[in-house]
């Protein structure tokens, strides 16, 4: 829902980094997004184009790596995958309270030139 404001943060971080490294252009921006982070890659792509226009990152590639949700079931003492936000353990049906991976929102790297 808040892809636009997230992308503003990303743009500002990227432009700052590019500037402090004396780059002329930003060629690519790479993100790592958990599948349960509540953001849509498509909306991020849209926001990226809009917000990068008229900057040294205009026309840059946005590469999004999506991380699947990984939960841990305490009763079964083992991890499992589920993409349903609720974290229902497929073995015992308990609701997991431990999402070990899936909420990431990370600017992983930049390609500058």
């Amino acid at each position: 829902m808040h892809e636009l404001s997230l992308m503003e943060t990303i743009r500002d971080l990227a432009l700052n980094q590019a500037q402090s490294h004396g780059a002329a252009r930003i060629e690519a921006v790479r993100l790592r997004i958990g599948s349960l982070a509540g953001v849509e890659p498509e909306a991020l792509n849209f926001a990226f184009e809009v917000l990068m226009a008229n900057t040294i990152g205009a026309g840059a590639r946005l590469e999004i790596e999506t991380l699947p949700a990984e939960w841990f079931c305490a009763p079964c003492a083992r991890p499992f995958r589920a993409e349903d936000y609720l974290g229902l353990c497929p073995s015992c049906g308990a609701i997991s309270r431990e999402l070990r991976q899936g909420r990431e929102l990370q600017l992983t790297s930049l390609e500058l030139s």
Binding site: I10, L13, H21, L105, Q106, L107, L110, E111, L112
Partner: peptide
Amino acid sequence: HSHTHLQLGLDL
């Protein structure tokens, strides 16, 4: 020309 891959790993 040169390009640089800059690792950041910044949590948004």
